[in-house]
């Protein structure tokens, strides 16, 4: 937690993706036009969210195994940052959808699933705040977060792919837009973007964890 290098790496990677993501050549495709560049900014939000929520559930399990409240603190702060990324992903996706699918919200399977996901995780925060006792709160919310994570995986990765039709690339009857997976030049920006934004999210979560620890130490004195 005391090392600086990964924070520097996060900033450098994001700077790289802002510059190359906006300036490098991209496939010239109808309807998408220049908005294809959103790939480098919208998609990393979701990758970042998944990675941080995975971290969150890992710390939940660690807490349940050891009973150490510090793991619970890490778990909840990673989840909160994940929720922030989820909201940003939804908003950027809506803006992108408005100009390529013509509606802010077209009830697309992926959109609906992502919204349900957000609600499940917001319920996690409500649940936490409704419990007074520290250990009880940590234990119940840790168990809930495992269920939330288990519900999120099929919601985001399985159900949208089973849908009859979806506008979102990589789902339902829309395999034609899978150029995202095959274009090397897009990958050259997308992958560093995913790493950069994830590290940025972990940095924000780390700041909140440290704040919580100080708060707790002051309460105990």
């Amino acid at each position: 937690m005391k090392k600086v290098w990964w924070k520097v790496l996060a900033v450098l990677l994001i700077l790289y993706t802002i510059i190359t993501g906006l300036l490098l050549g991209v496939p010239r495709l109808a309807i998408l036009n220049e908005t294809i560049r959103n790939l480098h900014f919208h998609v990393p939000m979701w990758f970042g969210m998944i990675i941080m929520l995975t971290g969150s559930v890992v710390y939940s399990i660690k807490y349940l195994r050891t009973g150490k409240l510090d793991f619970d603190t890490k778990s909840v702060e990673l989840a909160k940052t994940g929720i922030l990324f989820c909201i940003l992903g939804l908003l950027t996706g809506m803006l992108w959808a408005k100009f390529t699918w013509s509606e802010w919200w077209s009830g697309d399977p992926k959109q609906n699933a992502a919204a349900i996901c957000l609600l499940i995780y917001l319920a996690y925060l409500v649940l936490r705040n409704s419990l007074q006792d520290e250990q009880q709160r940590a234990r119940i919310s840790s168990v809930y977060s495992i269920f939330a994570y288990a519900a999120m995986i099929p919601l985001l990765f399985i159900l949208p792919r089973m849908a009859e039709s979806s506008l979102h690339p990589g789902n339902g009857g829309n395999p034609a837009l899978n150029f995202f997976d095959s274009d090397d030049q897009l990958k050259m920006v997308l992958y560093p973007a995913v790493i950069g934004w994830t590290l940025m999210g972990v940095w924000l979560a780390e700041l909140r964890v440290r704040y919580r620890r100080i708060e707790k130490a002051l309460e105990e004195n």
């Binding site: 994001i14 700077l15 802002i18 510059i19």
Partner: peptide, 28 residues
């Protein structure tokens, strides 16, 4: 110009995060 604006905003937010990080280190 757009790239420049985004880079400036991002660097500003980064600078702010670094400040918060430093303050936390101090109080820690």
């Amino acid at each position: 110009v757009v790239v420049g604006v985004i880079v400036i905003i991002f660097l500003g937010i980064t600078f702010y995060a670094i400040r918060i990080d430093r303050k936390l280190s101090k109080i820690e």
